[in-house]
């Protein structure tokens, strides 16, 4: 039974946690890909930026003696999301819009987003330094334990993890209603589907672009902050988080927000289960069969150091076998 609890903690829950983070990131990337038609390489650093803003705000409030029922970094989340969304729009205006207007090819925008990511990286490291930081200030990190009958270990979920599940769920539901019910949400889908017809129809592309950055930037800030709350704020996440998010986007199908959510969890679970030590689950089976076979000490499919290979291999396989992704996205 203990082994099963271990599997729930290190496999199922861990996969759901990282899957949620990837999903939140991938929604933004897929919307930007669908509407602005380029792979947004600055998304990873946008997440870090959001977390960094949360850190600064929370640190300032903590220093002012502010306290509340939740960790401060969680309570400032709405402000963080708004600020990050605003910065995203600013970045778009300064760096991407002029290129779009001059009729540059999509790939030039990809290059520009790499320039932006380097700028963000530089600024974040200049102000935050290279070391990682805690987003918990005065308050303890609550841990919830669920007892399992017949096991002396417990299923454990920390406060930020629980919060992550809740905000992910809320975001997904809100996004669903926004895209399927609201005028602007439908317009976003229309632009993603057929930009020239959308223009002919009188849909203002710039409004849609702005909405895209608000959602993408806001969710990136959310994902970055939640990740930093769960682990810690690392300024050098960048490409290491970007690759699985791109993989999630493409696995889900480009331009498909629901696909991005599914893709996020697929990639998150693939990664978690690939580095999971399966001997833990084999040991009880070996005991029942009177040790008919020997269980190696560690039986992970992929060594932890090579974790990044998992999203990459997924990405390559999907490009070979189903470039449209599971939700039949666009092939650009």
């Amino acid at each position: 039974m203990n082994e099963l609890v271990f599997f729930i903690n290190k496999g199922i829950l861990a996969g759901a946690i990282i899957g949620s983070i990837y999903a939140l990131g991938a929604i933004g990337v897929t919307l930007i890909f669908g509407i602005l038609r380029f792979a947004h390489f600055a998304h990873g650093d946008m997440m870090t930026l959001g977390a960094f803003i949360a850190y600064v705000l929370a640190a300032a409030l903590a220093a002012a003696g502010f306290a509340g029922p939740l960790p401060i970094a969680m309570m400032v989340l709405p402000i963080v999301m708004i600020l990050t969304a605003g910065i995203s729009i600013g970045i778009d205006r300064t760096f991407y819009q002029p290129l779009r207007r001059s009729g540059a090819k999509g790939i030039v925008l990809v290059m520009a987003s790499i320039g932006v990511t380097l700028m963000l990286q530089g600024l974040i490291r200049l102000f935050a330094g290279p070391s990682s930081r805690e987003l918990y200030f005065n308050e303890p990190k609550d841990i919830f334990r669920i007892e399992v009958p017949g096991a002396n270990q417990m299923i454990t979920v920390t406060e930020p993890q629980l919060a992550l599940f809740i905000v992910t769920l809320i975001s997904v539901i809100a996004l669903h209603y926004f895209l399927s019910r609201s005028r602007l949400g439908k317009a976003m889908r229309a632009v993603s589907d057929n930009p020239s017809l959308a223009q002919v129809t009188g849909i203002s592309i710039e409004t849609v672009v702005r909405a895209t950055w608000i959602i993408g930037g806001g969710l990136a800030a959310l994902a970055g902050t939640m990740l930093a709350l769960d682990v810690s704020l690392k300024p050098d996440l960048s490409f290491n988080i970007l690759l699985p998010i791109f993989a999630a986007t493409i696995v889900g199908g480009i331009g498909q927000p629901y696909g991005a959510i599914a893709g996020g969890f697929v990639v998150g679970y693939a990664e978690t289960l690939a580095v999971f030590n399966w001997s833990v689950l084999l040991r009880p089976i070996a005991r029942w069969t009177d040790n008919a076979f020997e269980v190696p000490a560690s039986l992970a499919i992929v060594p932890t150091d090579y974790k990044l290979m998992v999203p990459f291999v997924l990405l390559i396989l999907i490009l070979i076998y189903r470039p449209t992704g599971i939700f039949k996205g666009r092939v650009l």
Binding site: F95, A112, G115, L118, M119, Q121, G122
Partner: peptide
């Protein structure tokens, strides 16, 4: 030294534009 990262990024975006 992180400033140099920033400058590289800025150079890329400015040259493109």
């Amino acid at each position: 030294l992180a400033m140099r990262v920033f400058v590289i990024g800025l150079t890329i975006t400015m040259v493109l534009r």
